[in-house]
Design a protein around this nucleic acid. Structure first.
Lengths: 223, 223
DNA sequence: TAATCTTATCATAAAATTGTGAAAATAAAA
DNA sequence: TTTTATTTTCACAATTTTATGATAAGATTA
């Protein structure tokens, strides 16, 4: 997990960095918005800690530019809590904020909370012995990888990421095929058929819901 | 969006409730961990705001029990920031926390941040132990799911969403079968029969109203 | 209580929906 | 371009669901 700390005060950067490193985060610093954006263009971060008051470019502007390019969580820092009144309704995707002076421990806890959320959003899904790793673009059952066609893969992924939710053929078509698909509804059926076949014993988890469509339904025992 | 506020101080509950209602959240209160768990077992919430210091069961214990059963986001409240030292490394899924005294605006902003991620259209109806989850397209009684035919499902859904309202056969036909249905009135009777049968002890809540039609009538104890 | 009206039930025919295999169309790779 | 792989469509089979009408049961009223 890599974090970018953007603040013009070196002292603050150092303290924050110190604590984050202790928690095994990788930390990169930037002393103003411009430098931050440069670094973001060059490498990917899992979280950005951003001071509001900065020379050259303030935190809001910086964030706006960042969010245009990449969807990275942002934790805002501010010296005065009144500044946060501005934040309310400011809907550009601040994930959290902390007022100075803050206890380093508090900051770390916040950081953990955010990055943990992101970890959950990993690109891996597991249902029993069925595994879909979207990063590797691989599906396996009992560790044995399954060859899916692109459409089958996309369909499975959509089913999986909507576990328990009944999906109409139309929903499936617009989300898996694209809104501009103008073919037959029944196309879905055929792909469901082949997908079920490919999934073997896991095929049964794609349930038919008459008059509605299909639903992937797998009960996670634990987590 | 429904939020459960758990705190032993009535004053705090009221303030929080006030602000959340202004933001169009539905708020349910509980004054200790035991009551909270009871309510969570009965109904689903999108977020739980949980005080740490409480009689009977403290926030930590409560949360542990909640997380065993349902995956609901938790926002923790605490009077002393030192208490949060405990939180560090406490890895049971706290999504955020706020220290008392907190500004209501701050709290609302946090709540928004959490619920925003979760916003989905979950359409659930609950009458005692009878549950209809339209997203999952599932009907269950005492947690045991009931297999309904499409027509039975639609009919039940219509009845349920018109609780307490007497419906003529014609109304039922036009709304469940479609305005262009031109068959026999008696069709409704047959489906009511099978539906009642499927609902077991809950069948009786579909009442016959002579000369008029039928009415689903279930009195909610709570709220 | 008897007559009359309304609703419940049942078996079965009719209709609708989904599953399937194969062929046709399309896209991707060699 | 040719070959191969993938996607879509189609027709029919299999299955499930729905409609219906006759009759029984129940309720209402004179």
């Amino acid at each position: 997990m890599k974090i970018l700390v953007v603040d013009d005060e070196e002292l603050i950067r150092n303290v924050v960095k110190e604590y984050l490193i202790q928690e095994n985060y990788e930390v990169v610093e930037a002393e103003d918005g411009i430098e931050a954006i440069e670094k973001i263009n060059r490498e990917d971060f899992d979280l950005i800690i951003l001071d509001i008051m900065m020379p050259k470019k303030d935190g809001f502007q910086t964030m706006r530019e960042i969010k245009k390019k990449k969807d990275i969580p942002v934790l805002m820092l501010s010296a005065r809590s009144e500044e946060f009144d501005k934040l309310i309704g400011f809907d550009l995707g601040i994930d959290d904020y902390v007022t100075k002076p803050f206890s380093p421990k508090e900051l770390v806890a916040r950081v953990k909370a955010i990055t943990k959320r992101k970890e959950k959003n990993t690109t891996k899904y597991q249902f029993g012995e069925l595994l879909l790793d979207d990063t590797q673009h691989i599906v396996s059952i009992y560790g044995k990888s399954i060859d899916l066609t692109p459409k089958e893969y996309d369909l499975l992924k959509f089913f999986i990421s909507n576990n328990h939710i009944a999906l109409s053929r139309e929903q499936l078509l617009t989300n898996v095929w694209g809104y501009d698909f103008y073919g037959d509804d029944r196309t879905v059926d055929t792909h469901v058929k082949t997908l079920r076949h490919q999934l073997g014993e896991y095929g049964k988890y794609i349930e038919t819901i008459r008059k509605v469509g299909y639903k992937f339904d797998y009960e996670q025992e634990d987590k």
